[in-house]
Nucleic acid binder design. Structure first.
Lengths: 205, 205
DNA sequence: GAATTAATTGAACGTCCGTTTTATTATTGC
DNA sequence: GCAATAATAAAACGGACGTTCAATTAATTC
């Protein structure tokens, strides 16, 4: 046999991305063979090579899309400037919302970096650094204005990112907590963490 | 050839554990073949099977030792009872100290759970649950006594564990920060996070 | 110093891996 | 409806995988 009825390149590529992120998030990159991935898509392994030249290119592409999507989401959610507490709140809300909505690609992007060749790794890490820089800028402004009690901007930024990204490890919607609930609780903890004691506009303590 | 001069089962097993944790932490469980691991130990692949019946049993053993070591370290470091703030400080200090000292097995225990069969996974998760329960008990006592401002013990426990475990992702000793420095900074953040505002004995705010 | 036991090698097993090649069929543009 | 092109299948490639087994030698025991 050959071309199947109703076959469509765009749909197939999207299906490969979706199944790829899901399977790799569940089982790990090395544990997902091209044959297994193809089976999940409903296609033969050779068909995958029409869309991605190698398995590693598929992984790389998933990560790039994830990071670009995250940066774009933040670019749209980010307040123009001003009050560091408001900006930090926007950052945390955007971060948690984005990562909960894309749990699979988040797992892939956080856990499978070691499977990338040096050049591809550098490319992904550059995007990640750009994103983290945004948080550090907020923390620095807050520390300088006295709004935050942060003595080590870099370390605090890493701690916050680890904490808020960690939500996808345990959180499942439809339980006792909604996404809104969880976001509010993490926001409260983040504000306390940076010593933002006077942000009453949003109700934080 | 066969048995080598100076060969010793105990030393070989220890070398397999050390190289196993290191290689799996760096490259991932699936990416480390028995032949590569044997090469790092300086032995042939078949020799590994004298110590571990399967590759998965080696992984399982590494994780069990890690969790048992963590529980034992906490059992020794844990204050008898009393002030929740002191107990929380002891927990964070023990946790960070242990994990920095055992970065490889920490990575393995956190990242490779999905490679375990259901029974072995359950066994490891049971130990992990026991450990996390300790933190929740501290947070609950602190919340009830009014020492902490924690409204969701389970969620706060997860947030703290993610944050403090995350230190091994970016921290390398011998840089601008010592282990002591980093521990102190994470302790300050943790105390703020739980709203412990009056623990002056240790200098926290 | 002989017998026993512990530690390891080297070769082999069937299986699965990522990838390539060639052929075949569905869809599209005219 | 015919040519061009897009999408896929089927089979094959060499290589690596986890694991087993028989043979061999070092260390230990008596």
């Amino acid at each position: 046999m050959a071309r199947k009825a109703g076959s469509d390149g765009e749909k197939t590529e999207a299906a490969i991305r979706e199944a790829g992120a899901r399977l790799i998030a569940h089982h790990g990159y090395e544990a997902v063979s091209m044959r297994r991935l193809a089976g999940a898509v409903g296609v033969q392994a050779a068909a995958l090579y029409r869309y991605f030249p190698t398995k590693e290119d598929l992984l790389h592409s998933l990560m790039l899309r994830h990071m670009e999507g995250l940066l774009q989401a933040w670019a749209e959610a980010r307040p123009p400037e001003g009050d560091p507490a408001l900006r930090l709140a926007a950052f945390v809300e955007n971060h948690i919302g984005f990562h909960i909505a894309r749990r699979h690609s988040t797992h892939v992007s956080n856990m499978e970096l070691r499977s990338l060749s040096p050049e591809k790794l550098t490319q992904v890490l550059r995007l990640r650094a750009t994103y983290e820089k945004e948080l550090r800028a907020i923390l620095r402004d807050g520390a300088e204005s006295g709004a935050f009690a942060v003595d080590d901007v870099g370390l605090t930024a890493m701690a916050i990112i680890q904490m808020v990204t960690g939500v996808i490890v345990w959180f499942r919607p439809d339980e006792r907590l909604s996404v809104t609930d969880v976001t509010a609780k993490y926001l409260t903890m983040t504000m306390r963490l940076v010593g933002a004691g006077t942000v009453r506009e949003n109700g934080h303590v």
